[in-house]
Computed example of a mutant assay.
Amino acid sequence: MRVVVGSKNPTKVEGTRQAFLQYFEDVEVTGVEVKTDIPSQPFDGETITGAIERAKKSYSSEYDFSVGIEAGLFRFDGTITGYIDFQVAAIYNGKVYTLGFGPGFEYPPMVIGEVLKGKEVGDVMSELSGIEDLGKKTGAVHYLSKGVISRTELARLSVTMALIPWINRELYL
């Protein structure tokens, strides 16, 4: 099975590979650079739109599926900062796309404060952690969870959730 990811971020490519290998054999996953129309720091529905756009723009007939993964901040009342970060995955076969979300978590208030001033989460978290390109390595979630959860794992979980209709076609498609 051939799968393309609408990103060259190694955490997204590896998380996608791990997700597909749970259900399929001989999986080949490639990452390609994709330009989207959403802001570099998406909020709310922009995150979902970004995942779909990445999946659709990376698709070609040489692949069985394309995958778009986008992390973004969703507004939630009652949280410390008013925002929860979710990773969203879209899987596309050239006709139909499916969606999945990974677990959500909250950033520290100072991170959200800087993001609301125009910075990207990844840049703020790299400064906070002292780890350059944190989002292409273990991710902010790894730093904040004290090494228990990685960004690759968030990608795997969101892609796994988006795979549910594909592995249960008789119920969905």
Rank of each mutant, 00 (worst) to 15 (best):
E153D: 07
F43P: 06
H142Y: 15
K95Q: 15
F43T: 06
L144P: 06
T16E: 02
V141M: 07
M1E: 03
V111T: 14
T47I: 03
E28G: 05
Q41F: 04
Y107R: 14
F101G: 10
E127Y: 05
G82P: 06
I164C: 06
F105K: 07
Y83E: 00
Y63P: 12
K56Y: 08
V13T: 01
T160P: 00
E53Q: 13
K8H: 06
G6D: 01
S66I: 06
E153Q: 14
I48G: 00
L99Y: 11
G147S: 06
E46R: 03
S40W: 08
M125Y: 01
V111K: 06
P109W: 08
Y83G: 03
Y23H: 14
G118F: 12
Q22P: 00
G15M: 09
E153M: 13
V29R: 03
P42H: 02
N93T: 09
I131D: 02
G100N: 11
D37E: 13
G15P: 12
E170L: 09
T160R: 03
P103S: 12
L128V: 14
A51G: 10
T30V: 15
S126L: 00
D77S: 09
K56F: 08
F65T: 00
V29L: 03
K117P: 01
L128M: 15
I80E: 15
I84E: 00
A19W: 01
V32P: 03
E153S: 06
I48R: 04
K56V: 09
G45W: 08
K12Y: 07
S158V: 00
P103E: 13
N168G: 04
M1P: 01
E33P: 01
G139P: 04
V13A: 04
A140M: 11
E170P: 02
S129Y: 08
Y23P: 07
K56M: 13
Y59M: 09
G68N: 07
Y83T: 04
S158W: 00
F105I: 09
A51H: 02
S60P: 01
I149N: 02
L134G: 02
K146F: 10
L144M: 08
S61Q: 12
Y107K: 13
I164A: 12
A140S: 15
F24Y: 15
L128C: 01
E132M: 07
R169I: 12
K95I: 15
L154G: 06
D133Q: 14
L144K: 09
S158T: 05
T49S: 09
T138E: 13
F105R: 09
M125K: 01
N9P: 12
P165S: 05
V32R: 08
G6R: 00
G6H: 01
G113Q: 14
S158M: 04
Y92P: 11
V34Q: 08
V29D: 02
F105G: 10
P42Q: 03
E170S: 15
Q22E: 15
F76L: 12
A51Q: 06
T47G: 04
D77R: 07
N168T: 08
G102F: 02
E132F: 10
G72A: 06
K146V: 10
P108A: 08
E53I: 00
R151D: 04
S150R: 07
A51W: 03
A140F: 10
V29E: 04
M110V: 14
L73M: 06
M1W: 02
I80W: 05
K35R: 13
G72K: 05
L144S: 07
S145E: 10
Y97R: 13
D44E: 14
S61C: 10
R151I: 03
K12E: 11
Y23M: 05
V159A: 04
